[in-house]
Amino acid sequence: MNPGLLELAVVIPTFNERGNVPVLVAKLDQALRGRNWEAIFVDDDSPDGTAQAARELARVDFRVRVIQRIGRRGLSSACIEGMCATAAPLVAVIDGDLQHDETLLPKMMTALEADPKLDLVVGSRFVEGGGTGDWDRDRVAKSAFATRLARHVLKAELSDPMSGFFMIRTEIVRSLVPRLSAIGFKILLDIMTAAQRPLVFAELPYVFRLRTEGESKLDHVVAMEYLIALYDRMFGKVVPVRFAMFSAIGALGAGVHFAVLALLFRLGSMAFVSATIVATLVAMTFNFFLNNALTYRERRLKGWRQLLDGWVSFCVVCSVGAVANVGVAAFLHDARQGDWRVSAMAGIVVAAVWNFALSSRFTWGRYK
């Protein structure tokens, strides 16, 4: 072994993991003794100073590197940036929360070095010898359901497609980057479904550990992102995922529109045009906040100033659509004297295309 030849890069996506940084590096130092490696912390501008903690360590340990991302969020995209930032022939992804077993890394390296046909090695919780640690029954059931969904997309007998702990040949990742969606938290699923040929993989067992520092990143939005990632791989080429999300939220907004309109026009005896204007504004506000949380999550607006500015710009850039909405609905209602709901729906459809095109460019597009 050439003592100066870099063999492995360990990519560690982080958000609010300051206390785990030195502990993880110490564990990597022990596990990878005798190997030439580097640790690349890719931090999404953690408010707890995770990036600074990694930089302080990098001053005394040349193997530690830091990528601090400003204005960008997302585990998958962080992993992609880290994997493309190394010259090492092998790259591993491991969480910064110490729940993955770093002692498995040398075995992963050995497996890839011994078999040139092997593309990646996955740390699995669900093969013999692996385990989920202290997970309760509810979390185990949810993970099993998500795994079944993933297998339908993968079309491969991978026992743990939800794993965030794996090692892959760097050249393979680089070749796949243009086709990666970078959506959500499951970069392994993204890599395996983006490959034009089935990747040759092996699985090694490990037991998921209990978190001791920081806070869990699992929430309902993460679950939503997982479903979005699956949709993108199955149907994204037909209907882009962002447009699908915007349209789905628009459908919910239509429900809000109808509810407000019915309340004001049918029950409150307000004039149809006035009721339509109020319903349009309420639905627009609803759509803005939900799109900010989901559709544009990676560049969502934060703080009351940004939110107020974003809401105002959203209303302004969609004003043409809103005017068309009200105008078309009022015209059809007055001309046909038919079902008020049909008139309202016609106005919503006319406004939908304007809302997506203009808000993508002028509301969230300004905050890339």
Rank of each mutant, 00 (worst) to 15 (best):
L105S: 00
A351I: 06
R65V: 14
T170Y: 12
D334L: 15
A53Q: 04
K27Y: 12
L189P: 10
F243P: 02
K27E: 03
R266D: 01
M345N: 06
C318H: 13
M167G: 00
T363Q: 03
G321S: 11
V11T: 00
W311A: 05
V239H: 01
V349E: 04
L32T: 01
I80C: 04
T212G: 13
M162I: 11
F289M: 03
M83A: 09
L120A: 02
G253D: 03
F41G: 04
I80E: 06
A195Q: 11
L188P: 06
A352R: 06
P116L: 09
N2S: 15
A53G: 10
F272L: 08
G34Y: 08
L332T: 01
K117V: 07
D61S: 12
T285E: 03
N291D: 04
G321M: 09
E17H: 15
G130I: 00
L24Y: 00
M224I: 10
L57N: 01
L104T: 03
A202Q: 07
R33E: 08
E7S: 00
I70P: 01
E157C: 08
W340M: 07
R33N: 07
W354R: 13
L218E: 10
H333L: 14
A9C: 10
G164S: 04
R63W: 09
D115S: 14
F265D: 02
I67S: 02
V256F: 13
R148K: 12
V328M: 11
E203N: 05
F166S: 04
L8Y: 08
V328I: 02
R72D: 03
R139F: 12
V64W: 05
T50K: 14
A58G: 06
V91E: 00
A352N: 05
D309E: 08
G214M: 10
S360A: 14
D138V: 12
S77A: 06
A78H: 04
A146Y: 07
E157K: 09
R174N: 05
M270G: 02
S124D: 07
D339H: 15
V221T: 01
A324L: 15
W304R: 15
Q99N: 13
R336G: 15
M162Q: 00
A144S: 08
T50Q: 15
K368W: 11
G71Y: 14
V66K: 07
A244G: 08
S159I: 08
A275G: 00
V173T: 03
L180H: 02
M1Q: 03
I12A: 03
F201Y: 09
A275H: 13
N2T: 05
P22K: 06
D136T: 06
F289T: 00
A324S: 09
D61V: 07
V177F: 12
E213R: 14
L104P: 00
T285I: 10
L199K: 02
R341V: 14
A229H: 09
L218P: 13
W135K: 04
A352Y: 13
L252S: 00
V278M: 10
V312N: 07
G129T: 02
H257A: 14
V256S: 09
F265N: 02
C318W: 11
D44Y: 06
G19N: 11
V122S: 11
F362D: 01
L180Y: 08
V127Y: 05
L105V: 03
V60P: 08
T50C: 14
